[in-house]
């Protein structure tokens, strides 16, 4: 499963953190890759409704997540604050993986 994350906006909007990062669950430790797959399923990623930032929100982030699991492909926009705990858990896990990839600590 390949996952690409782009983060837009935010008070700390910084060029290095705004670049899209792609991770491949096949290259992650097995447990981490399996956990990601579970979170994708729990969040019903391929059926979830995209969300837009509140018109009154300022400095909130929008995450664009593209996932290719071999059988399906989808890009989904998720705006903060993320109310769905399952989607929040998925975003947190992807952000953690991409942060590690960006810092070379994966």
């Amino acid at each position: 499963m390949k996952i690409e994350l782009s983060v837009d906006g935010g008070f700390a909007r910084l060029p290095g953190l705004a670049k899209p990062v792609t991770i491949d669950s096949a290259t992650l430790p097995a447990a981490r890759g399996a956990a990601l797959a579970t979170l994708v399923a729990r969040a019903r990623f391929f059926d979830a409704t995209p969300t837009s930032p509140s018109p009154a929100a300022r400095d909130a982030r929008t995450y664009t997540i593209a996932i290719d699991d071999g059988a399906r492909q989808r890009a989904l926009c998720v705006a903060e604050p993320i109310a769905d705990p399952s989607m929040r858990a998925l975003v947190d896990a992807i952000v953690a993986c991409t942060d590690d990839a960006r810092r070379g600590t994966a």
């Binding site: 935010g10 008070f11 700390a12 953190l17 509140s54 018109p55 009154a56 929100a57 300022r58 400095d59 909130a60 982030r61 903060e80 604050p81 929040r88 947190d92 953690a96």
Partner: peptide, 16 residues
């Protein structure tokens, strides 16, 4: 807010 969250924002009613 969140885990290891690198941000602060105004949601239109409050600060986070």
């Amino acid at each position: 807010y969140g885990r290891k969250y690198d941000n602060a924002f105004w949601d239109g009613r409050q600060m986070v």
